[in-house]
Each structure stands twice: as C-alpha cells, then as structure tokens.
C-alpha cells in the first residue's frame, strides 16, 4: 500500500471535492465523457441501466415536502489504496500503480465483471456492446485515449493521459510536479471550482491542505478501502 504521507519518489495523486461548492450542474460529467471517449449507449440502453458515466452526480433528497433539500455528491472511482476490485481480478486487468492509482488495463480484461460486483462505490462500467458515437460525436474522439471494445470493464483513470503529460512537463523542466501541472477534465470544467487535484504526498499542495481540513471525509472510510478522493462536507453538516 502506498502511504500518503510517506516521502516517495513518485507523486501520489488525489482529488478533493468541496460539496459546499458543488451545484450539481454536471459540467464534469460532460467534460469527462468528451475527454475519455466514453461510449454513448442511447436512450433504450440507458433505460436498462447501462449508461456509462465515469463521474456522476448522485442526488439525495432530504426532508419532507415542502421542506426538501437536495444533496449532490459527485462520485467517481475513489482510487482506493486497498481496492476491493483489484485482488478479485483473475488476470491482473486491474492493479495498483506506484502513484496510488487504481489502473485498468483494457486489453487484459476478459470481462468477468467481478471487480464491478466487489466495488462498494459502483463506479465500474461494463461495455455490454461495442461502443458507438452517433454523428457527429465520433468527430470529437480524443486521440490520446484508447477506445474500449465490448466485453471489457472501464472506469475513471483520473485522466491518466493528462497525468502523464504533466509529469513529462515537470521532468522536462527538471522539477517536481506541482499544483496546476495536472488538471483532469472534470476538475478543469467545474464552474464553481469545487474540485481540486494534486500530489497528496507534497504537504504544500492544495489537496494535501484540504485533506487536513476538519471538513474532510472519505466515502465509506469504515470499509478500510482508503480512498484517494476526499470530500469536504457541507458546512451545515460539519
């Protein structure tokens, strides 16, 4: 397991999401879809619970009518340090990288779907059919992200292609990565700046600072999965 506070050579990627700032606008959902070439399954398949959203806004209602409040929570792969999805894969299609990412190797996946069944956050998505993009969406495909075929599992990568670019840039400039080097699509698209991304092993980074906040919590911490996504509680709940 990668320790967050440990001094490692490699950056330890993490995300912080301020629930107080999230308006549930779903800009992140759209940005993620375009950035990561996520297949469009269409309305019929979507009605059969087969839509793919690497990040989604979960809506929970609180209270009785007319005093109803809606809580939003963007949920994406939590990149657990002790991920339940990893050991159950028989072919190492999902494993843990040295940067603390929960990696998914599409070409290695045979499609047992065991990982999705063992994910407490339900953030793994299966390609039930070959991917499709109704015109003109196929023109917007990102050349830096591979297309997944049918029969394989996929999920949020923390925009691994952008992480690699940021790391290369830092290496070219002969320095450690710093805030702003890597901005995943969802983070960059958030109009209220509710999302932060960075190296949590660097105690000066924004994510590390937010992780120390008294509002910081992680989803289902009691399961011992040690997620790398930190949620900042709404102040009225703090």
């Amino acid at each position: 397991m990668m320790n967050e506070t440990e001094k490692t050579q490699k950056p330890q990627w993490a995300m912080a999401i301020d629930l107080d700032r999230c308006t549930g606008c779903e800009a992140c959902v759209v940005a993620c879809r375009i950035e990561n070439n996520i297949a469009v399954v269409g309305p019929e398949e979507s009605a059969r619970d087969r839509s793919m959203n690497w990040i989604r806004i979960e809506r929970y209602m609180e209270g009785e009518f007319p005093d109803v409040r809606v809580r939003f929570r963007p949920v994406l792969c939590q990149h657990c340090q002790e991920a339940p999805c990893e050991p159950v894969c028989p072919v190492y299609a999902t494993y843990h990288t040295e940067e603390g990412l929960n990696a998914q190797v599409y070409n290695r996946c045979v499609g047992t779907r065991y990982c999705a069944n063992n994910c407490p956050y339900s953030v793994r998505f299966f390609n039930f059919f070959d991917p499709q993009w109704p015109a003109p969406l196929e023109k917007s495909l990102n050349p830096e992200v591979s297309i997944r075929t049918r029969g394989v599992m996929e999920k949020c990568t923390f925009c691994i292609q952008r992480i690699r670019k940021g790391e290369e840039k830092a290496r070219d400039e002969d320095r450690a990565v710093r805030d702003g080097d890597v901005i995943p699509a969802c983070v960059g698209s958030c109009p209220t700046k509710a999302m932060y991304f960075g190296n949590i092993a660097d105690s000066n980074s924004e994510v590390a600072r937010l992780a120390r906040s008294n509002r910081a919590e992680r989803l289902m911490e009691d399961l011992g999965t040690e997620p790398r996504v930190i949620y900042l509680r709404k102040r009225d709940q703090a």
Binding site: Q81, A83, P84, P87, Y92, Y95, E226
Partner: peptide, 16 residues
Amino acid sequence: QMNLVTGGMPIVAPWA
C-alpha cells in the same frame, strides 16, 4: 515475476 500490487495484499499471499 508479475510483482503487481492488488488490493494492498502482499505479493506472496499464503492465505490465498
């Protein structure tokens, strides 16, 4: 030989 970490388990996991 694979040397891949999964789920924070040791590479050689006697239980399994």
